[in-house]
Simulated scan of single mutants.
Amino acid sequence: MTTTPPPYSPPPPAQWAAPGMPAKRPPIVWDIVVTIVLLVLLGILTFFVSLFGFFLVMASDPCGAVTQCNTELIGLGVLVAVSLPWVVLIAAAVVAIVLLVKRRIAFWVPLAASPLVIASWFVGAWIAAAGVPTG
Score class of each variant (00 low, 15 high):
83 S>P: 14
32 I>S: 14
50 S>A: 04
57 V>R: 03
27 P>T: 07
91 A>P: 11
93 A>E: 15
42 L>H: 10
127 I>Q: 01
50 S>T: 05
47 F>C: 15
12 P>H: 12
99 L>D: 04
40 V>Q: 08
88 V>P: 11
31 D>R: 04
132 V>R: 02
117 V>F: 10
82 V>I: 12
115 P>S: 04
11 P>S: 09
88 V>D: 02
116 L>E: 08
30 W>R: 12
61 D>C: 02
85 P>V: 00
45 L>K: 10
105 I>M: 08
56 L>T: 11
64 G>S: 13
81 A>D: 00
47 F>L: 07
71 T>N: 06
52 F>A: 03
15 Q>A: 08
101 V>C: 03
93 A>D: 01
32 I>L: 13
106 A>H: 07
127 I>K: 07
134 T>C: 14
18 A>I: 05
20 G>R: 05
21 M>A: 08
90 I>Y: 07
70 N>T: 04
87 V>G: 11
80 V>I: 08
76 L>M: 14
6 P>D: 15
44 I>P: 12
71 T>A: 02
92 A>Q: 06
12 P>T: 11
37 V>W: 10
69 C>Q: 09
103 R>K: 06
1 M>R: 01
104 R>K: 06
57 V>H: 05
2 T>W: 09
96 A>Y: 06
123 V>R: 04
22 P>D: 13
17 A>V: 11
44 I>N: 08
100 L>E: 00
75 G>Q: 03
28 I>N: 15
90 I>K: 01
62 P>R: 09
21 M>Y: 11
19 P>A: 05
76 L>R: 09
8 Y>G: 02
22 P>E: 14
72 E>P: 09
65 A>C: 02
120 S>W: 07
45 L>Y: 05
128 A>S: 15
41 L>T: 09
107 F>M: 00
4 T>P: 09
2 T>C: 15
98 V>L: 12
18 A>Q: 13
7 P>C: 10
87 V>Y: 12
126 W>S: 12
93 A>K: 06
111 L>T: 05
32 I>Q: 14
106 A>Y: 05
53 G>L: 00
55 F>H: 12
59 A>E: 10
100 L>P: 00
51 L>M: 11
135 G>Y: 01
7 P>L: 02
41 L>I: 06
29 V>G: 09
63 C>S: 12
132 V>D: 05
58 M>R: 04
119 A>P: 11
26 P>Q: 07
127 I>T: 13
74 I>M: 15
65 A>T: 10
58 M>G: 03
72 E>A: 11
129 A>N: 08
109 V>K: 06
50 S>P: 15
58 M>E: 09
94 V>M: 12
18 A>S: 15
